[in-house]
């Protein structure tokens, strides 16, 4: 299988992984959904990729460990989020990518009739450099990515003169660094396998109101795509997200923070024209272990349109 063939398939995988961004539970997770994909698509020197993604996430149940619990004052939380992406390939191996997102709503709903805490606004700015280590090898193609997130968006947002809780603030309020490693390999003319390893570390939030640091995030995803028809492919992937405990003032570990969640993600990709792709999919949590007691993610859906120049 030639490199061009692999490259063509990587467009699909890019979209699968784009879509597979973390639609994590809302509790104590301000800021953008974590960027876990690696922009593997390098269409050659000076090529540009522009994308628009929409996501919805619902966290509808409280979990104590891996079991549902009816304890708590919070009923559920959700968000509607859109992200604009630009990717520029400086060389055939090195590319740079920027993502900026906007929360149409990021809401926590309460029992007992209290008005929900609802925020909206600009999220964080994500910058990522990707380098393709191997274009072809026995294990396929390999790439690494190194990035940073800048808290340029809305933080310390108030509604009716009341500061909203940290977990609904659109921006994470802190700088973050992330590292990613990506592999993919074609098997025959219809099947492609891929895997992704990602890590993200957050700095301390030091605002007027909050002193907090989110725990480290580790992600592993692996899956395959299958070409059903010319231009139409389906993919299925599994992903494990492991978030460490957070820290609050005086470096106290927050016991009810951090989680282990495994998702199954069916998705599809439709190549509308030669340079345009549409994709959509669902994130279905099949296993959760929430440290202590927390809201757990119930469902994530996404769709995206990508144009290549």
């Amino acid at each position: 299988m030639g490199f061009r063939h692999i490259l063509g398939r990587s467009v699909l995988l890019l979209l699968v992984l784009l879509a597979g961004k973390n639609l994590n539970a809302q509790c104590c997770a301000a800021g953008n959904p974590i960027g876990t994909d690696l922009d593997f698509t390098n269409g050659g020197k000076n090529s540009v990729l522009v994308g628009l993604t929409y996501r919805y996430s619902l966290s509808g149940s409280v979990y104590q460990g891996s079991k549902k619990s009816d304890v708590g004052f919070v009923d559920k939380s959700d968000f509607n989020y859109s992200e604009f992406t630009v990717n520029y390939a400086l060389t055939s191996r090195l590319s740079f990518r920027g993502d900026i997102g906007y929360f149409f709503n990021k809401t926590e709903y309460y029992n007992n009739g209290f008005t929900p805490a609802r925020a909206n606004g600009l999220g964080d700015l994500s910058l990522l450099a990707n380098y393709q280590l191997l274009k072809q090898s026995k294990i396929g193609a390999l790439a690494i990515g190194l990035g940073v997130k800048l808290p340029v968006g809305i933080f310390d947002q108030e509604v009716d003169d009341v500061k909203l809780p940290i977990n609904v603030q659109p921006s994470s309020g802190s700088f973050r660094g992330n590292f990613q490693f990506f592999q993919q390999k074609g098997l025959g003319s219809r099947v492609m396998i891929f895997s992704l390893l990602s890590m993200e570390m957050a700095a301390w939030i030091r605002s007027d109101n909050f002193t907090y640091r989110y725990g480290n995030m580790y992600l592993f995803a692996t899956g395959f795509s299958y070409k059903i028809l010319p231009g139409l492919s389906a993919a299925l992937s599994g992903r494990g997200e492991f978030r460490g405990r957070s820290w609050r003032d005086d470096h106290i570990s927050v016991e009810s923070s951090g989680s282990k969640i495994i998702y199954v993600t069916p998705s599809f990709n439709w190549k509308i024209k030669r340079k345009a792709n549409f994709n959509a999919g669902v994130l279905l949590p099949v296993y959760r272990y929430m440290n202590g007691i927390q809201l757990g993610n119930t469902l994530g859906v996404y769709s995206g349109l990508t144009l290549k120049y």
Partner: peptide, 10 residues
């Protein structure tokens, strides 16, 4: 105006 460093104000 109300604010808190941790928790939720309703």
């Amino acid at each position: 105006q109300w604010s808190t460093d941790h928790g939720t104000i309703l």
